[in-house]
Amino acid sequence: MNKTSNPQDLAQIAKRVRREIVSMITAAKSGHPGGSLSATEILVTLYFDVMKHDPANPHWADRDRFILGKGHACPVLYSVMAECGYTPLDKLNTFRQLGSIYQGHPDVRFIPALEASTGSLGEGLSLGLGMACAARLNGSPSRAFVVLGDGEIQEGQIWEAAMFGAFHKLDNCVCIVDYNKIQLDGFTKDIMDVEPLADKWRAFGWHTIEVDGHSIEALQAAFAEAAATKGKPTVLIAHTIKGKGVSFMENNPKFHGTAPTAAECEQALKELA
């Protein structure tokens, strides 16, 4: 794979990834486009610039670990991993079909290069922190990156994990909250408001950075700040737009978990051309 720090190049990759997300969910006739599109720049920046990893050697001991806590957004992860060369690009449209490695939620039994099977919300941060503990014991430079949904952090385990991460000073763990303000049943503020979000993480002892989750330059700067922050873990509160890049999906709760029709897919791909 060709890694790059060039924001324009990363933006091009992000555009491809968005097209693949829309196509695979359309082909599957089910899936979660909104939260996949909102997290696209985050994952592209991590996989193509920030993280140390090697698709040719997926179990390299000192690799950085990535965990998608919000496992339902796996189309973005599958697309990015395929773009990196971990898995076949030409099979993305088998998403959710019997026998596909691209399962409905990430499943290590089908893709061994995944770090975790997720889908039941609230557990990814604990896993990432456990991996960060192991890296520290091993004297390894490996870091853990965990992407959480904003609805996901309503789960109590997230805050158990937040306490744990700060208490054990796990500065080799970086959490990213994809704060797109929408969950399955509607707007997060109407279902269970998570505000004041930055204050909550600061109160739990995390170095907290608020960032535009669609600005690759801003994400790069935030990840650099996280790497330089010692003695405490860092959380990026990434302000994003659910369904970003497709006009009729943006900020539309309907597209949390609804596949586009063929006509909608055509329209979306035109917008993402």
Partner: peptide
């Protein structure tokens, strides 16, 4: 250094342990 106090939070403790085990411990 190999003992991880998780506080009274068993759900987190189990998944922390799973993370450690996933990383080879």
């Amino acid at each position: 250094e190999r003992f991880f106090s998780c506080g009274i939070a068993e759900s987190n403790m189990v998944a922390i342990g799973a993370g450690l085990a996933s990383a080879g411990k």
